[in-house]
């Protein structure tokens, strides 16, 4: 159960959502996406109130979501999964070229059922599907979780490119090295509320603050 979250995601920047397990990071993303019902408070996005909207309406409003559990469709091919991500049902060739360059495995297995891909490739597909056309906001939930370092560097490379496009990203990440490399802003959550928010550089440069917020001393911060 989430309570008291107070989070601002600046446009055109990457905001990393940090915090210990069970702090409410994934719940926050799922609630923004409408997958879990908002009971109190409000979620504003580009002048709209998302609170009463369903997931499909929120997605059509321009929010792309990459779930934690590699939300691909295993029975469909890589190409079909990608096509599902395009709201117009037509993928732009330059976008496909860009994504298959960023994730070469996807080009190789383009007509294979997505269920036959490795865990890392599934995560690449999940990310590529949401990147197949520009979104106003990307919600990305722990994309590097449990993946090999080589795969993580591919994903980070692709996310860097997305960031360079000026995309607005809210990303949950447990790997602080990845968070530091990508994030411009950071918000730390604990027990369903944002306990700290600010520039990533400030958090990255203050070991004491990191220890206090993400170590075992969060109780002292309340």
């Amino acid at each position: 159960m989430l309570q008291g979250v107070d989070l601002d995601v600046p446009a055109g920047e990457v905001t990393m959502l940090l915090g210990r397990n069970g702090a409410g990071k994934t719940t926050t993303l799922r609630t923004i996406m409408g997958l879990w019902k908002l009971r109190q408070g409000r979620i504003g996005f580009a002048g709209q109130e998302l609170g009463g909207m369903g997931p499909s309406a929120i997605a059509r409003a321009g929010i792309g979501y990459v779930p934690e559990e590699m939300g691909i469709f295993g029975d469909l091919t890589v190409a079909e999964n990608m096509r599902l991500g395009a709201r117009t049902r037509r993928m732009r060739q330059d976008r496909i070229d860009w994504l298959t360059a960023a994730f070469p495995a996807l080009g190789t297995f383009w007509h294979r059922p997505a269920g036959t891909l490795s865990g890392g490739q599934k995560q690449m597909l999940s990310l590529a599907r949401v990147m197949v056309e520009p979104r106003q906001l990307y919600l990305i939930d722990e994309p590097t979780k449990g993946l090999a370092p080589a795969v993580v560097s591919v994903l980070v490379g692709a996310l860097r490119q997305l960031k360079s496009e000026g995309a607005t990203i809210l990303m949950v990440e447990q790997n602080f090295a990845v968070a530091k490399a990508l994030g411009q802003n950071a918000a730390v959550m604990d027990d369903g509320r944002t306990v700290w928010s600010g520039r990533m550089a400030e958090l990255a440069g203050d070991a004491g603050l990191q220890d206090r917020l993400m170590g075992l001393h969060l109780e002292g911060h309340r």
């Binding site: 997931p55 499909s56 997605a59 779930p67 469709f73 599902l84």
Partner: peptide, 24 residues
Amino acid sequence: SPFGTVLQAIRENEFRAEAIGYRV
């Protein structure tokens, strides 16, 4: 067609399909 692909996506995971933007 794209319609058929969406149907198969719904069959596999309707919540996932909804989160991509399809009115299941």
